[in-house]
Simulated scan of single mutants.
Amino acid sequence: MGKTIPRCLEQLDLRKSFVGLATGAGALYLLYKAIRASIKCQPPLCSNSPICIARLAIERERHGRDSGEIRRLLNSLDCKQDAYTRSMILHSITRCVYLLEAEASTCTMDDINLVAEMLDDKDNSVKIQALSALKAFSGIRKFRLKIQEHCIKVLELISTIWDMELHVAGLRLLNNLPLPDYVHPQLRRVMPALMEIIQSDCILAQVQAVRLLSYLAQKNDLLYDILNCQSSQPGSLLLEVLVFAEHLSEGRNATHYRAVKWHYNEQSLHEALFGDESKLADRLLSLVIHPEEEVQIQACKVIVSLQCPQDLGSRPSSCRPSHSYFKAGE
């Protein structure tokens, strides 16, 4: 009996050893699979460094062969990474497109659509990096028409998400493209968002928004369309645009502005609004019968500012509008 108990203990220890060995082997195998899957889904380490990408560009210039870096990055977007990883991959794609332009030119329209799909990502950082990557690709002529197809989506993002980095990235992309005619109705709908961006504290976003407004003024007469004689236009929207026009006009009277002799391109926003050929004042006359008095008064202020560009203190009395005269029905 005494010999049987130790023998049973030895067998128990042996079984524990086998179980421990099997469990350890299984854990190692699972760890191996996890590491392998992670490596497969991650972009090449080199892509995280601008120095490495620059080195690839130099090597390509010397030897005339593709590095395959952009292709590896695009292929890695098929994996189910977290938002940070997707964002970093798109950021690396943007760098590669700028530094390896000849290699980027060999990409396909499907690659552009793959990047554009990231605009639907739930994470704003991924959207921002996707917009930056599309802007990089838009510098290659053959991709511009394909990228134009996503302009409506970009305008939707700008008008529905209040994120200054996203605004800057989206507006930069739009300003880098010739906008097709079918985008114009959507542009009219996002005018309130553009006005809010211009009044924000982000200078980069303001600059990009004004550039887009300048494009609209010279290409589509869109600013005039907003300030037309249609009384059906929302009063709040008209009022915001009129205030914007007044501030621009009054800015011309600033001392530091007058101290410089400015030269404007004939297609600039300044010329469209304040140039000799501008018809803004004539268009605004129709708004003095707008049903909302605030719109009437603001339209008068802009007209006076346009026709009497002196400082307020030196304006003759004939330049001052009579608010009662411009009331509807009088």
Rank of each mutant, 00 (worst) to 15 (best):
L166K: 04
L166H: 06
H167V: 00
H167W: 15
H167T: 02
V168I: 13
V168N: 02
V168E: 03
V168L: 04
G170W: 00
L171H: 06
R172L: 12
R172Y: 12
L173R: 02
L173D: 00
L174N: 05
N175D: 03
N175Y: 02
N176D: 15
N176K: 11
N176I: 02
N176S: 15
N176L: 07
N176F: 11
L177P: 05
P178I: 06
P178Y: 14
L179W: 06
L179E: 04
L179A: 08
P180Y: 11
P180F: 08
D181Y: 11
Y182I: 09
V183W: 06
V183T: 15
V183S: 10
V183P: 06
V183L: 13
V183F: 11
H184N: 12
H184L: 15
H184S: 15
P185W: 09
P185K: 11
P185A: 14
Q186C: 07
Q186T: 08
Q186P: 00
L187V: 04
L187Y: 01
L187Q: 09
R188F: 01
R188V: 00
R188N: 01
R188T: 00
R188D: 01
R189T: 10
R189P: 00
V190L: 07
V190Y: 09
V190S: 08
V190K: 05
M191R: 04
M191H: 05
M191S: 01
P192Y: 06
P192G: 07
P192H: 10
A193H: 13
A193M: 12
A193G: 12
L194M: 15
L194G: 01
M195P: 00
M195I: 13
M195T: 10
E196H: 15
E196V: 14
E196I: 11
E196F: 15
E196D: 15
